[in-house]
Design a protein around this nucleic acid. Structure first.
Length: 878
RNA sequence: GCGAAGUUGGCGGAACGGCAGACGCGCCGGUUUUAGGAGCCGGUGGGCAACCGUGGGGGUUCGAAUCCCCCACUUCGCACCA
């Protein structure tokens, strides 16, 4: 009958225009409603949306629309994290200025975002590379500087000698420069930090408020990142010179077992000690060698443990013993004190190091029931036991004696109990152009002088060169040379720019007052909108961005700029979008169409060899990984919008898996989403036609309140309740956002509705309308254009987003009877239809009265009966 | 190395400690004068059966995909990518 197709392109365009016209996504749409701030992590403007964005912003949009339906005054903003390395790399490669590159990308991605149907309040758009944004980064820096929260210290960077440039960890592969392949080494530079480590305990304490509102995994990762550990600081001294060399240890109980002490190769004391000694050259060379390779934690840890004797000894305060000082690459300057006491008998890493270099092993803890002999040990003994060779602590349990030992250390001034954190100060300096200039001027006379607030912003200059060597900002003569604000003499600007994580640590505050040119934001706007009610983003941000933003908010709180300490009330993290990638030993990564598959089944395999490379004929192995350009497994959202429309893509993204799981990309499922929409559309058409027929017959027809009506009404209310619960979370589905099960409930309702139509069951017009409108409404946040179109088809003249969310009635949803399983000794044996509210005693009676059950337990003794009302009965027999 | 998450049919996934496989994809068969990426009907974990089945091995329980312990594998993060 109807051979027309659903013209999604026209429908989607039509509704986007109407939403714009009606101001659906501007704050105040539900004027007077309670505020709701729905935030999604702003993207880096790479120029193309990837599937991670699609899932992220679809979830955010569904939440915003759902809250609009529930009457909230919703703020749902979008912006651009537009500073960063890629624009600068593009400038080096193609000569296009980062500014032009970035603006073009923003324009492209904005168009893509509109096509997806994500509703944002574009009047609040921010771009961090715009001077009206980064000016406030500089302003915050000055405030931090005044308070001692921004300081300058020495820290190592990845240095490529042949490119004469600092490299990001990302640009270092296996200790080599990504561009030229030459060896990378660490180099110390004086750089700016935010003293975030001061906030370690507060960040940790904040978890109490966040527990239950952030994913547990994120809190666990942040706890690990903050890395609180209790232990003691022990005052070792250099035997020859008397220099203090404190160490931090979590195992003060093993202090009598120390046989050497390790110091980080870049420890400042090392160079001082060695100065003028015969071994100076050799030890410093060895230390330098240890610093080859990148600075990332993974690079450091993966390195083989090596060391060299420094030619000095240190004195163990507890027994006065002198033990040798070693330089070791596993001693980390930025953790603890940069020196570690070594107890080979009770620490595996120390044990291995001691065996490698022939250092002594001394047992100070004996496990019960066996006796360790140092010379016969093959591994360290790290567990608990009885202290031996430990002076007055001999005979005590090492764990139980811990606090006593710490007290003793403090009383005797050998050390003190202390808490150490893994959390480091935040290194914000970047030796790059495309970032916020740090507002500091260096004067020969006055030293480092902050740029006065009235001189802000320090604008990024355009007259710079991108050669791939050094920091381009240093080539801007007009930028670098300036006057000292204090003495007026010739001075030079800081050419380091800020880490882009500074930008993203407060952008959510700026959205509340995006156009303010007198302050980063006005207090009353912050009061209205902050904190963020729901933040949505990728799990990959669990530590860095989310910790920096929390720290920044606490710092702003301490500056009196905001009156809360946690920026995000609730956090939801979607999983990675992954897809099979193909790798050929010789040709590296291949696109799927570059693989000659062994057979049809091989196309679905996600691991192991699946075929041959079309180019070289070598074996191709499949691997399931995050969608990325380098692995050639990207999916272009635009192409999907072209083929299926935004609604079908959105529906598919949410219908398959709960969004906090890893999403496995499989295009076949998209067809199914498209079909679901068509089926619903067909249903709406058929029903609106038949409804017209019905009303033409007359209103005198008795309403057929029969069995079919009751069933459909029940199913409809079940759908509303279950779908709402799946979205909201709650007792059963804790986290919420289980769109996949909400969609499944709608499908069930649709199936039942179509079944009844096909069977020509008599259904009252109002019952049918409620059912069909419920399906449309439950889907409206997910497939908004489609839902609007159906809503209109159903005779409504106003947007569905004006109609409010559906309310389920638990009484109408309730079932009268339920078929419960009957178990005999825990095994399913029979079923019985019982009243839903039948009490345990009634269940027992009716089950025992059942002939089948009697036959099953004939000749056996009933030991007990477990009856769970409404769920099951288990008869235990012997 | 450290930390996190995950592992259920051919596939994505459902399942307050209580009927394993909802819903969807795919596949198989049928159907509608039907050529569409269409609709509709039926089937679809394994096994002829009894039964067996939630990565492997133990445990707790009347009852375990679910809780506990051990192990394996996969993915993600680790501070200059954002």
């Amino acid at each position: 009958m109807d051979d027309d197709k659903y013209d999604f392109a026209a429908v989607e365009k039509k509704w986007r225009e109407r939403w714009d016209a009606m101001g659906l996504f501007k704050t105040g749409f539900n004027a007077g409603g309670e505020k709701y701030y729905a935030l999604t992590m702003y993207p880096y403007p790479s120029g193309v949306l990837h599937m991670g964005h699609v899932i992220n912003y679809t979830i955010g949009d569904v939440i915003a629309r759902y809250k609009i339906l529930r009457g909230f005054d919703v703020l749902s903003p979008m912006g651009w994290d537009s500073f960063g390395l890629p624009a600068e790399n593009a400038a080096i490669r193609t000569g296009v200025h980062p500014h032009a590159f970035t603006e073009k990308n923003i324009a492209k991605m904005t168009a893509q975002m509109r096509r997806a149907g994500w509703g944002f309040d574009w009047e609040r758009e921010v771009a961090t590379s715009h001077v009206d944004y980064y000016k406030w980064n500089q302003w915050f820096f000055l405030k931090f500087y005044e308070r001692g929260l921004a300081v300058k210290k020495t820290a190592p960077v990845n240095w490529c000698d042949s490119c004469q440039t600092v490299l990001a960890n990302e640009q270092v592969h296996n200790g080599e420069c990504e561009r030229c392949g030459s060896a990378v080494a660490q180099k110390d530079m004086s750089q700016w930090f935010f003293t975030m480590s001061r906030y370690a305990q507060r960040l940790l304490d904040g978890h109490q408020q966040l527990r239950g509102n952030y994913p547990d995994a994120v809190l666990a990762m942040q706890e690990e990142w903050i890395g609180r550990s209790e232990g003691a600081k022990i005052y070792f001294k250099v035997a020859e010179t008397g220099d203090a060399l404190p160490v931090f240890t979590t195992r003060p109980d093993t202090l009598f077992g120390v046989t050497f002490l390790s110091i980080a190769p870049e420890h400042p004391l090392l160079a001082k000690l060695l100065k003028g000694t015969p071994q100076e050259r050799a030890v410093l060379d060895a230390a330098k060698k240890m610093r080859e390779g990148g600075t990332s934690e993974k690079d450091l840890v993966d390195k083989e443990k090596v060391g060299v004797a420094a030619g000095f000894n240190v004195v163990n305060p507890v027994n006065g013993e002198s033990v040798p000082l070693w330089v070791a690459n596993f001693a980390l300057m930025n953790y603890g004190t940069g020196a570690v006491m070594a107890v080979p008998a009770h620490d595996q890493r120390d044990f291995e190091f001691a065996k490698k270099y022939g250092l002594p092993v001394r047992v100070v803890i004996q496990p019960s029931g066996e006796k360790l002999v140092a010379s016969q040990m093959t591994a360290a003994y790290a567990a608990a036991g009885e202290l031996v060779n430990s002076g007055e602590f001999n005979g005590k349990n090492n764990v139980a004696a811990m606090s006593e030992i710490i007290r003793w250390l403090t009383e005797n001034k050998f050390g003190e109990g202390t808490v150490n954190y893994r959390l480091r100060d935040w290194l914000i300096s970047r030796q790059r152009y495309w970032g916020t200039p740090i507002p500091i001027i260096y004067c020969d006379k006055c030293g480092a002088v902050p740029v006065p607030e009235k001189d802000l912003p320090v604008v990024l200059p355009d007259d710079v060169q991108f050669k791939g060597e050094g920091n381009p900002l240093k080539t801007g003569a007009s930028f670098v040379n300036c006057q000292c604000p204090q003495c007026g003499g010739a001075a030079q600007r800081e050419t380091d720019t800020m880490d882009t994580f500074v930008d993203s640590s407060w952008y959510f505050l700026r959205y509340a007052d995006a156009k303010n040119d007198r302050a980063p934001f006005a207090a009353e706007k912050i009061k209205r909108w902050l904190p963020v009610n729901q933040y949505v983003g990728g799990i990959e941000h669990a530590t860095m961005h989310l910790i920096y933003a929390r720290f920044f908010t606490m710092a702003l709180h301490d500056l009196g700029l905001v009156d809360f300490t946690e920026p995000f009330q609730k956090l939801f993290c979607q999983g990675m979008v992954c897809k099979t990638a193909y790798r050929c030993e010789a040709c590296k990564w291949l696109p799927a169409d570059g693989v000659e598959f062994a057979d049809e089944a091989a196309k679905d395999k996600t691991t192991g060899v699946v075929g041959k490379c079309q180019k070289c004929g070598g074996d191709v192995a499949a691997e399931m990984t995050k969608i990325s350009k380098t692995k050639l497994n990207i999916v272009d959202p635009d192409a999907l919008f072209d083929r299926f429309g935004a609604d079908a893509v959105r529906l598919y993204m949410l219908s398959d898996a709960p969004p906090d799981r890893m999403q496995i990309w499989n295009e076949a499922g998209l067809n199914g989403a498209w079909r679901t929409l068509n089926r619903l559309r067909l249903t709406v058409r058929e029903w609106t036609n038949s409804e017209r027929k019905l009303s033409a017959v007359g209103e005198n027809l008795p309403a057929p309140r029969g069995q079919a009506d009751r069933e459909l009404t029940q199913k409809t209310h079940q759908c509303i309740i279950a779908a709402t619960e799946a979205i909201e979370g709650g007792s059963r589905l804790q986290g919420g956002f289980h769109f996949n099960t909400a969609i499944a409930r709608c499908n069930e309702l649709l199936n039942q509705f179509r079944q009844k139509m096909a069977d020509k069951e008599a259904i009252d017009g109002a019952t049918a309308r409620l059912a069909i409108e419920t399906m449309v409404k439950m889907l409206s946040p997910i497939t908004p254009h489609f839902a609007e179109e159906m809503w209109e088809m159903l005779g409504h003249t106003e947007s569905i987003f004006r109609s409010g969310w559906a309310v389920g009635d638990p009484q109408l949803a309730a079932e009268a009877t339920v078929e419960i399983p009957i178990q005999i000794n825990g095994k399913l044996r029979h079923r019985q239809e019982v009243a839903v509210n039948a009490a345990a005693a009634e269940l027992e009676k009716s089950v025992l009265a059942d002939a089948t059950v009697q036959a099953l337990i004939a000749g056996k003794t009933v030991v007990k009966i477990i009856a769970v009302p409404g769920r099951m009965v288990n008869v235990v027999v012997k």
